[in-house]
Design a protein around this nucleic acid. Structure first.
Length: 757
DNA sequence: TTCGGACTAAACAGCT
DNA sequence: GAGCTGTTTAGTCCGA
């Protein structure tokens, strides 16, 4: 390689010194390539061509020298224009159609003594060969078209609908192949055009600079007729400008001219790199599109379609920038092995690989078939991809839209969440999810969280953690859950516990809800501010940053909400939760809605919009659990007993049934069943505030059927009215909660702790 | 469009 | 005086 390149440079330099422009060399090369390509890839053919080529080169050199020496030839002294235009050619000649050398041109050239008759003859022969090849190409092209048509016809008739799709795909793939072929043809035409330009330069003169000729924008005129290899080489030369291609030419023509490429067939395969490759490999490279001469691949056509496609691309790349290929990189070549599907032939160097590639994997019917298959594969994959995308979009849209969508999904979630968090647990943040984190703080997008978010959130909630906050609050939360909150809460959160603990995702709960949860979660149902902080940071990774912000929010909420009571304790000041107040607040919110009647259900988490069907489903699913003696008993104990049961029943059902299947999965029935008493208790507690006034009669009766529960629940809106801030029930001031509450909480805590931990 | 809830930010005061 | 705690206010965003 090095030697060759060196010789090439030398030759070039010498040529330039003599006034031989790069164009001249390119011209020579073009001619040589033409001959080579026309002759074929075989070494013998190449050698023959090489001889001819050498002759041409010699003649051209002589002519050039003559021209240079002749002041009247129109060529300026090399000194003055060496660099830019070593050879000047009459404009008329330069503008001549590149396609074919007209007799006039020939004559003119002869007159100018640019080329010797022999050279011209050789060029003519080359042109003829090129024309033949072009015809061959056209025939090939036509054949492809015919095949396509035949296939189309065949596909049209087969009456089986089942196969229609496949046929269509095949057809599409074929069309793609056809298009590719067309592209190849176009490229060839371009290359031919470039070649013609080169010829013009050759015959007439440099004409457009090589780089210009290489411009892709060139008009696609009817190709003069060159083999792909030729075209590619020309392309290389043209694009390469003064690059290796030129040098190569120089080398071959000049220094190695006699040898005609010592390497087999005069092709300098030895030089894997730039220059050498051009000679031998280039033709091969260029040839791909036109594989007339190529040898059929012995490999299975169907295998590795992708690779084939890659190869096609590679070919295109080569065509576009052949000169760069010399680098030795090829998608189908790696580790000295041909990566062509099923080939794996060892190639010592890139040049050898290229030769192998062009010879063994040239464009032929088999390769075409492989391309088709590959195209089908790709197409199918694309179709699949599009489908998956659509599905994803639908999912996204569904999740995002949840909030506004039918209450069914969201509400159920709400129920769940409400149950769990007792107060505010935002049902699921589904509504907010993907959309946008309402607050800038919202660190993670729902999407990110979704995967991890368990059914609790996930069921319907999955949505974005980002916006989650408020929306999920009380409105959706179950009123029942005061004491039992923890129990329920965890069912929701428990699954996500680890998630929130480790993921920097903002929990879909309001600060009030979280604070309450923290307090409830404590052994004594009371926490200092610092302990609350700790709980936040311990439970949610999200709160491990921006401490100033969320801590301020915590303090703000503690002060703002009456439900949080500050109690002076031995330790100092501790915060407790006034469930009554909490429930009041919630109920108030609920009352705000026009349909209070339905409020209970809604408060329970169903939301006003809860579908009857959902309720029924909930009832069916969850009621049984609630109906357990334990539940009933607990419920009976509370002042709200009766109502509570009804509520509970409704709630429970809501939790289980209300929540979509996914939710259910998230909060396993087991949770409820496991802690039914908790539910009851919690429900009682929460209901106490609001439902106390409700008659405790009949409520205690365990007999409530789920279905029945719902209606009763509705009836019991009054509790909502209880919202009086002054409600005597408030536990606020008491650091020690009422025995009942404490008990409940303890139970809850146990459950909670278990759940969480 | 309005209202209310939730959140954020900030100021202020009291206490340790 | 600094830091923490607690209160209050104002503004914004969002959903109903």
């Amino acid at each position: 390689m090095m030697q060759e390149s060196a010789t090439e440079t030398i030759s070039n330099s010498s040529m330039s010194q003599n006034g031989m422009s790069t164009l001249s060399s390119s011209q020579l090369e073009a001619g040589s390539r033409d001959g080579r390509s026309s002759a074929g890839d075989t070494s013998s053919e190449v050698s023959t061509v090489e001889l001819l080529h050498l002759q041409q080169q010699q003649a051209l050199q002589a002519a050039r020298q003559l021209l240079l020496q002749q002041p009247g030839s129109g060529l300026k002294s090399p000194k003055s224009q060496d660099k830019q235009r070593p050879l000047q050619v009459p404009v008329s000649v330069a503008m001549m159609s590149p396609q074919v050398i007209t007799p006039q041109q020939m004559q003119q050239i002869l007159q100018q003594q640019v080329l010797s008759p022999q050279q011209l003859q050789a060029l003519l022969q080359q042109q003829q060969a090129v024309m033949l090849q072009q015809q061959h190409l056209q025939e090939f092209y036509k054949k492809q078209q015919e095949q396509l048509h035949l296939q189309l016809l065949q596909q049209q008739h087969p009456g089986k609908q089942v196969k229609e799709q496949q046929q269509q795909q095949q057809l599409a793939a074929q069309q793609l192949v056809f298009q590719q072929q067309l592209l190849q043809m176009q490229q060839l035409q371009q290359q031919q055009h470039l070649l013609n330009m080169q010829r013009q330069g050759l015959l007439s003169l440099p004409g457009p600079a090589p780089g210009q000729a290489a411009l892709p924008g060139q008009t696609l005129q009817p190709p003069a007729g060159l083999s792909p290899a030729e075209l590619q080489q020309l392309w290389k030369d043209v694009t390469g400008g003064n690059g290796h291609g030129m040098e190569d030419n120089g080398i071959k023509h000049n220094s190695s001219g006699s040898t005609g490429g010592g390497n087999g067939g005069g092709l300098d395969l030895s030089t894997n790199n730039s220059s050498s490759t051009t000679s031998s490999s280039n033709p091969a490279k260029a040839s791909p599109p036109l594989s007339h001469h190529s040898i059929a691949n012995g490999q299975s056509p169907i295998l590795n379609h992708r690779r084939e496609r890659e190869r096609e691309r590679e070919r295109e790349r080569e065509r576009s920038s052949l000169h760069e290929e010399s680098g030795g990189t090829h998608p189908l070549y790696g580790h000295g092995v041909c990566k062509w599907p099923g080939c794996e032939k060892l190639c010592e160097d890139f040049g050898q690989f290229l030769k192998h590639l062009n010879s063994e994997h040239a464009l032929d019917d088999r390769s075409t078939a492989q391309c088709r298959v590959q195209m089908q594969v790709v197409q199918q994959l694309e179709i699949q991809l599009s489908k998956e995308r659509e599905r994803l979009q639908a999912m996204m849209a569904h999740l995002h839209m949840r909030p506004s969508e039918p209450k069914s999904s969201p509400k159920p979630l709400n129920l769940v969440s409400s149950v769990t968090m007792s107060k505010n647990l935002p049902p699921a943040s589904p509504p907010n999810l993907p959309q946008t984190p309402t607050t800038p703080t919202a660190p993670i997008t729902p999407m990110a969280a979704m995967p991890q978010v368990p059914s609790v959130l996930g069921g319907a909630n999955v949505p974005s953690m980002g916006a989650m906050r408020r929306r999920h609050s009380d409105k959706y939360s179950m009123p029942l859950s005061s004491g039992g909150d923890t129990v329920f809460i965890f069912p929701e959160i428990a699954p996500n516990y680890e998630f929130y603990k480790n993921a920097d995702v903002r929990p879909p709960f309001t600060y009030a809800t979280l604070i309450r949860q923290a307090i409830i979660d404590s052994a004594e149902h009371q926490l200092t501010l610092n302990e609350i902080y700790s709980w936040f940071t311990r439970t949610f990774a999200y709160f491990r940053r921006n401490a100033a912000t969320w801590k301020n929010a915590v303090r703000h909420n503690l002060s703002l909400h009456k439900c949080f009571v500050r109690v002076e304790n031995v330790k100092g000041a501790v915060w407790t939760v006034d469930e009554v107040e909490y429930q009041k607040r919630r109920s108030q919110k609920i009352t705000g809605s026009p349909s209070l009647v339905k409020n209970l259900p809604s408060s329970l988490g169903y939301g006003t919009a809860l579908n009857a069907s959902l309720q029924a489903a909930l009832a069916e699913t969850s009621l049984p659990l609630l109906g357990t003696p334990g539940l009933m008993n607990s419920g009976s104990t509370g002042p709200m007993g009766g109502s509570c049961h009804g509520l509970l029943g409704g709630d429970a059902s809501g939790l289980l049934g209300g929540s979509p299947p996914g939710l259910l999965g998230g909060s396993p029935p087991g949770m409820l069943s496991g802690s039914p008493p908790m539910l009851m208790q919690s429900a009682h507690e929460e209901l106490n505030g609001s439902l106390d006034h409700l008659d405790t009669n009949g409520h205690g009766s365990p007999g409530y059927s789920p279905s029945a529960h719902m209606p009763p629940i509705h009836v019991k809106e009054e509790p909502l009215n209880m919202d009086d801030d002054d409600c005597p029930m408030s536990l606020v001031t008491t650091a020690n909660h009422s025995p009942e509450l404490d008990d409940d909480r303890e139970l809850e805590e146990g459950n909670l702790s278990e759940d969480l931990e």
